[in-house]
């Protein structure tokens, strides 16, 4: 255990923990857009930036992304100093230029006193904030069907060769984890379309309601030792169990949840 000071309060934390986890546990609201419980920290959005110092640092301060900074003995952390807020405002200003119409960004920016970007907003904006949660979640699921492609202002999330991704099983993990609902899919009857790829959904023997895609079921049966008829019975306990098994990354069926 190490002890450190966060916003004037002395707290204890496990060695190896990251600052952001400790800060959030204290109930302090530090924004972070690329954080997802199912995957490793990424340091992409830079919004969780905090100020750190130590008594022995002779007045020196550092600004670090708290999601990636491990706790240290005697560290003094400030989460909302004027300078930190300024840094966050600067980052949100850039986010607003990229995603001027995205509600999540608008709200966060408003929290920091910004209603519009001081830069020129990009001409045809979309809701992708490039947090890479979708691609990392896809990796965590073991499919790696999509990835970040290109770089700089051309960077985007895309399937390989911009074609229907061969490794995608239609599990919807990417769409469900997307913080801005940029990734869309369509379920019509027992057909699902995501990333321009068509899937057939299995249906429950009793209720006739769609469960998960055939490809996803095949994968789970083969790799996670789930019995073959498991996905043909649509009940709450199965949904719960599967959600637990998959680290709650993906749920059985979003259509059901929406009801």
């Amino acid at each position: 255990m190490v002890s450190l000071t966060i916003n004037g309060k002395v707290v204890r934390a496990e060695e190896g923990e990251y600052l952001l986890a400790v800060i959030r546990r204290m109930g302090i609201d530090v924004p972070a857009l690329c954080q997802h419980e199912a995957v490793e920290p990424y340091g992409g959005c830079r919004l969780c930036m905090v100020e750190i110092t130590k008594d022995s640092w002779d007045g020196w301060k550092k600004y670090v992304t708290s999601c990636l900074y491990p706790v240290e003995q005697d560290l003094i952390v400030t989460t909302h100093s004027d300078k930190v807020n300024d840094l966050r405002r600067g980052i949100l200003d850039l986010f607003l230029a990229r995603n001027p119409e995205t509600p999540l960004i608008q709200k966060l920016a408003a929290d920091y006193g910004l209603t519009r970007t001081s830069y020129e907003a990009i001409p045809e904006p979309n809701d992708c904030i490039l947090c890479s949660i979708c691609t990392r979640v896809c990796d965590a699921m073991g499919f790696s069907a999509i990835s970040m492609v290109n770089r700089g202002h051309g960077k985007e999330v895309a399937p390989p060769l911009h074609q229907a991704p061969p490794d995608c099983v239609g599990c919807l993990a990417c769409a469900q984890a997307c913080p801005t609902n940029y990734i869309t899919y369509e379920d019509v009857g027992n057909r699902r379309t995501i990333w321009n790829k068509q899937f057939e959904l299995l249906v429950c023997d009793k209720t006739g309601r769609p469960t998960i895609t055939k490809e996803f079921a095949d994968y789970l049966i083969k790799n996670r030792e789930i019995p073959e008829d498991y996905f043909r019975i649509d009940d709450a306990s199965h949904r719960e169990e599967l959600a637990d098994k998959m680290g709650r990354i993906t749920r059985w069926s979003v259509t059901e949840e929406a009801k």
Binding site: T135, S144, A145, S147, M148, V149, R151, P159, P160, D167
Partner: peptide
């Protein structure tokens, strides 16, 4: 060529998406 990306992915046991990511970066 597309074929090269696909064959590379398979031979090196790297997901095709990662090969595409690197080749566009």
């Amino acid at each position: 060529p597309c074929e090269a990306l696909e064959q590379t992915a398979e031979a090196l046991h790297v997901p095709l998406s990662k090969v595409f990511s690197v080749s566009t970066f």
